[in-house]
Design a protein around this nucleic acid. Structure first.
Ligand SMILES: NC(=O)c1ccc[n+]([C@@H]2O[C@H](COP(=O)([O-])OP(=O)(O)OC[C@H]3O[C@@H](n4cnc5c(N)ncnc54)[C@H](O)[C@@H]3O)[C@@H](O)[C@H]2O)c1
Ligand SMILES: NC(=O)c1ccc[n+]([C@@H]2O[C@H](COP(=O)([O-])OP(=O)(O)OC[C@H]3O[C@@H](n4cnc5c(N)ncnc54)[C@H](O)[C@@H]3O)[C@@H](O)[C@H]2O)c1
Lengths: 215, 215
DNA sequence: CTTGTTTTGTTACTTATTTCACAAAATTAA
DNA sequence: TTAATTTTGTGAAATAAGTAACAAAACAAG
């Protein structure tokens, strides 16, 4: 099993670039071209593919459609991924209203909130009372959840999620989550991301030095 | 100059942990304790500090207040950082309404949008027409911007920002930004983050293997 | 059918990051 | 004062990640 987050992120990028190329009418692609599209080296592309046993044709490159099938399967995009969101505040509703997840095969099937005023069973994405989370998740065998509550509530929400059978969390609250061994928590910490930009702006514009970060 | 993004992110985490410790009444801390708080090794803490010439007291650990001053200065948190947001949609307004940035010394001073219906000069954070961006940024010498527009508009917004003197961007649009050498762009790509969680959930629950990602 | 060209797949190399390990400094105890 | 203990600070060692290089395969041209 490949455990490098960066590597998996690159696979997603390859996939997205391949969709672009496909929509432009290309049927096959060389590692060089794909690398340029994504902003990595051709070696990196071939190495990544090699790690997953993906092979192309010498001199012929890769068939985009076959490649996409492989990548989609690795990334779990061959079936619809159902996701719930806890916390129907600013971030939570932004996510629930976002149209872009659909075309990625990701469907937010429900939101949950502790505040009755935030609940609304009849929206496009229903927002349910937090008390209904466990049954909902169990019934629908949902494995992925998003935490968009204040930090103070995040751990207890996570515990509830794990109890219900969720195995993977994307957490927006600026706090570390204690999680079982067979689960995964990824963090989106916007304060840290901003702080990081601030550091590099200061650092790049104080002395003379060049270096970039890319993602 | 330290150019490792991960290292800088850790500095931010140390800072946040130190504030917690301080608020709990601690005055000094050992690398071991801080490491536990942040979820890294003590060696890592000391090595990071060493890279920035931060030193403590043998046998005595680090004075939290002095340490915080150093870290804050490195991270540019010794002065208020003014930031603008372009795109007053779901993500953009979530950011503008977020109270948490203030206590981090980050102030979103204005939003900008192409849609007159989204503009509103009299809110807590005024939202101005995109045409006013350049003057505003120049007058206020703003160096940091956030892109929260659709992907299709992101590059042109970025170009406008760079032209106005912005040096660092946090970009929420799922697209790579071409940027000048002396600038920095960080990406928050929520689709990729979710896809990543999905991969690891599948990977961890298919075979028997253990491994975790932490942030 | 042979020669030349292109591009993969993988091994070897390089660079970056993290951990180890231990001397030196600081502190406490005797 | 001396010995014992603790914790830092930093080179050296170990791991991880990324790049380069090249043999082997595939194809095209003559
Ligand atoms: N909004 C931003 O731009 C921003 C920026 C950085 C970080 N964050 C982080 O993202 C998280 C969400 O931020 P937000 O601005 O959307 O917050 P918000 O206050 O708008 O929304 C939080 C929601 O969570 C609900 N909630 C609280 N406790 C709950 C519980 N135990 N169970 C279920 N729901 C609960 C609240 O009722 C509310 O609807 C916070 O942790 C915040 O620190 C947000
Ligand atoms: N909302 C989410 O949860 C989510 C999730 C993943 C990615 N994203 C990405 O974040 C970005 C913003 O998403 P959103 O949901 O907030 O979008 P949104 O449609 O709610 O808002 C976009 C805003 O940008 C403005 N805009 C468009 N072109 C502009 C221009 N040239 N100059 C200035 N303003 C302009 C629009 O008027 C609108 O107000 C998008 O790129 C989206 O792909 C959002």
């Amino acid at each position: 099993m490949v455990t490098s987050k960066n590597c998996i992120i690159r696979l997603s990028r390859y996939k997205n670039a391949l969709y672009r190329l496909l929509s432009l009418g290309f049927l096959k692609v060389f590692s060089e071209t794909l690398a340029d599209e994504v902003g990595v080296t051709a070696s990196q592309v071939r190495k990544d593919f090699s790690l997953f046993g993906i092979s192309g044709n010498k001199k012929g490159g890769y068939q985009i459609e076959a490649l996409l099938n492989k990548l989609s399967s690795i990334l779990g995009k061959d079936k619809l991924q159902k996701v719930i969101v806890v916390g129907s505040g600013h971030i939570g509703t932004a996510l629930m209203k976002y149209k872009g997840f659909e075309k990625e095969g990701i469907k937010i099937t429900a939101g949950f909130d502790i505040d009755p005023a935030k609940c609304n069973k009849s929206g496009t994405v229903p927002v349910l009372p937090i008390g209904e989370l466990k049954d909902f998740v169990k019934n629908d065998a949902i494995k992925i959840g998003i935490i968009a509550t204040p930090d103070i509530a995040a751990q207890q929400v996570a515990d509830l999620m794990f109890e219900a059978g969720i195995k993977g969390i994307l957490n927006f609250a600026p706090i570390r989550i204690k999680s079982p061994q067979d689960s995964i928590v990824n963090y989106v910490n916007l304060e840290l991301e901003l702080e990081n930009v601030i550091y590099f702006v200061n650092a790049l514009n104080k002395p003379l030095s060049l270096s970039k970060d890319s993602a």
